[in-house]
Amino acid sequence: MTDKSLLIKTVDLCKQFGDIEVLKGINAEIYTGDVVVVIGPSGSGKSTFLRTLNLLETPTSGEIYFEDVDITGDVNINYHRQKMGMVFQQFNLFPHMTVLKNMTLAPMKLLGLSKKDAEETAISLLNKVGLEDKANAYPNQLSGGQKQRVAIVRALAMSPDVMLFDEPTSALDPEMVGEVLEVMRDLAKTGMTMVIVTHEMGFAKEVASKVVFIDEGIIMEEASPKEFFENPKSPRLKEFLSKVL
């Protein structure tokens, strides 16, 4: 966390699905080393916002600058996506491949790593999340928490510059939420830039460097976690926090 340079910047980001305006002009700045937690009521557009950052959803208008390049322009998005890891609510591991193959496929095909190097990286990442014995297991043999930890290290195997988390614990049994948050907490400590959409308020308070409240398609409020939770300004946020805390 030495230099805090601007990593992602969105300008007037809008997204419509048919006639429904989901994002109505989002201006956000994410610096390297930031852990940005995005919260908001369901249907507020927070997941859509996250998914536009790596263009899984194409914005209707507006710009997204990632490492000073406007990725909504005429660029090879596949190249930029290599540097943006993403973790999904439904894990989305490849069920026809072992854990190891899940983690080595993209590094071998895209970064040109040899099988040996890719597997070494994968094993050392699996070690970090305590799943080294699952390298040759298939995703369906894992518990939900294990699947999500594999999904996180699969994204990390590409050595991304930022990690996007789309409600990573929402599909988990309660007793498995902890192990996934633990991995994310450790990741934050390494200085990884993270953007996390979540409903885990405790986690937001503890790990976030900035909390963003999205409602009705715009950023209603953003602040440090202390300020955000102890001294909310907008009435919508006050109302939201009173319901969830």
Partner: peptide, 26 residues
Amino acid sequence: DKGQFEASRSLGMNYVQTMIYIILPQ
């Protein structure tokens, strides 16, 4: 599942690679 497609694309694989390695085998 659509998520398979998104996961593959989010890793940076292009459309053809996603089809060959992820979608068609399944």
